[in-house]
Each structure stands twice: as structure tokens, then as C-alpha cells.
């Protein structure tokens, strides 16, 4: 299987005043194209740092990172932005929708600048929100808002979807609906999906689970039989 990301000896040090925080301490990793990956671990174990680095929001302090044939470590800000624009869809715990734009317009924010986007309506239909297209975020429930965020992330047909606690602010029922849309994108569009979570149950839907501890991948678990999100025990 083809590799999406290949990283070796990735390190990240944050300096705040006198103190140094080692967020990543030499992480080696390979992410295959079309894979659904779950990153588990306690707070501060380095999951988010890694996700931000592979998503081009942040740079490693040391190590190498390639996306396909592109060396991500050597890119400047503009090139990183270009990389995100072309390849990455992000989903965060707090939806981060633009309150002044309707659901459809929030999706259009991405389709306006993407190379080969789907129609905003199509993306909303994929997450089951076709009827709510003209609603503003303030008029949607939390779960609906997060599905709009998913639609916004998949509308540009990105190679990779990076999700940082996508269900952290949701109850089980709406959380599972969001996970279903992620699984659907992985299955039907072949999108590589990486999900950070505290919820161990979610690991059941992954093909591979990376366990983080103290800035390292402590253990990799391969799941031969990923389950449907419906079957997850929350």
C-alpha cells in the first residue's frame, strides 16, 4: 500500500521563557493512503502536536517528514498553506464555523479555493444536512455544527482528514453520527483519516491505533476487524 506520510525521529520542543517542553521525542511513523487511524493517549502525550505537524500547522524542531514526495520540513509558510489548501481537511473539537456564514457558505469557504472541489450541497448531503444548508451556525445543534465542519473538511476532496477530538463536545448519539460521516469519507472517497480521541471505544473503528505516552508512540495496535461506528461502545 502507498504511503501518505513518512516521518522519522520527529521532535518538537516548545520554549516558554526559561522552561523547555518536549512535546515530541523522536517519533517514527508511517501513515498509509486510505488508512483510518486513531491516536490515543493522555493529555500532553504529543498526539495533537503530531497531528498539527503532519497537517502543516506547525513545524517539527527535528526529524524528517514527507508527504508523498514532498519534504514538509523544508516548506515556508506560504508553501505550507498551499499544502494544507490542497491536501488537508481539519476537524476540531469546537467546530470553528464562521458564525456569519450559513452551513452552505461555510462549505463554500473551502470550495472557493480548492482545486477540484465537490459542490457544497453535495458535501452537505454526504453528512446528511442537505436540508439545513441555509441555516446559520447559531441555528444548528452542536452535532449538526460538527457535521457541517466535516462537510467543510471533505468538500475539497482532501487526501487526508485530520480530526482533533471531533466528538469531544458531543453526546454519544451525535458523536456516532459524526464518526459515521468520517468512516463514510474514508470508505467512499478513499480519504486517509486520523482521529485523536480520549475515548478508547472509538479505537474499535480504526485499522491501526497509535498509543502515545510522553511524546513517543508507546505502542502500535493493528485492528484486523474495524467495526462500524454504530457498534462502538461509547
Amino acid at each position: 500500500m502507498e504511503l501518505a506520510f513518512r516521518g522519522s525521529a520527529l521532535g518538537k520542543v516548545y520554549r516558554t521563557g526559561e522552561t523547555e517542553v518536549h512535546a515530541l521525542r523522536g517519533v517514527d511513523l508511517e501513515i498509509r493512503t486510505g488508512e483510518l487511524l486513531v491516536l490515543l493517549g493522555p493529555s500532553g502525550s504529543g498526539k495533537s502536536t503530531l497531528l498539527n505537524i503532519i497537517g502543516g500547522l506547525d513545524r517539527p524542531t527535528s526529524g524528517e517528514l514527507h508527504y508523498g514526495g514532498t519534504d514538509l520540513v523544508g516548506l515556508n509558510d506560504r508553501e505550507l498553506t498551499r499544502f494544507r489548501r490542497a491536501n488537508i481537511g481539519f476537524i476540531f473539537q469546537f467546530y470553528n464555523l464562521i458564525p456569519s456564514l450559513t452551513a452552505e457558505e461555510n462549505v463554500r469557504l473551502v470550495t472557493d479555493i480548492a482545486d477540484r472541489p465537490m459542490e457544497p450541497g453535495e458535501a452537505l448531503a454526504l453528512v446528511g444536512l442537505a436540508e439545513r444548508a441555509n441555516h446559520y451556525p447559531a441555528q444548528l445543534s452542536g452535532g449538526e455544527q460538527q457535521r457541517v465542519a466535516v462537510a467543510r473538511a471533505i468538500a475539497k476532496q482532501p487526501g487526508v482528514l485530520l480530526c482533533d477530538e471531533p466528538t469531544g463536545a458531543l453526546d454519544s448519539k451525535t458523536g456516532i453520527r459524526v464518526l459515521e460521516t468520517l468512516a463514510k469519507a474514508n470508505r467512499e472517497l478513499g480519504t486517509t483519516v486520523a482521529i485523536i480521541t480520549h475515548n478508547v471505544g472509538i479505537a474499535a473503528m480504526a485499522q491501526r491505533v497509535l498509543h502515545f505516552l510522553d511524546g513517543r508512540i508507546a505502542r502500535t495496535e493493528i485492528n484486523e476487524n474495524p467495526v462500524d461506528p454504530q457498534a462502538i461502545s461509547w
Binding site: L57, T81, I88, F90, N96, I98, V110, I113
Partner: peptide, 16 residues
């Protein structure tokens, strides 16, 4: 600030 950061994450350039 939140919206602007969101746009940056979505792949908008600083100038945009």
C-alpha cells in the same frame, strides 16, 4: 481572531 485562524487552517494565505 478565531475566524481568521480558521481560515488559515482551511488553507487561506495570510494575504487572503
Amino acid at each position: 481572531a478565531n475566524e481568521l485562524a480558521t481560515l488559515r487552517v482551511l488553507g487561506y494565505y495570510r494575504s487572503e
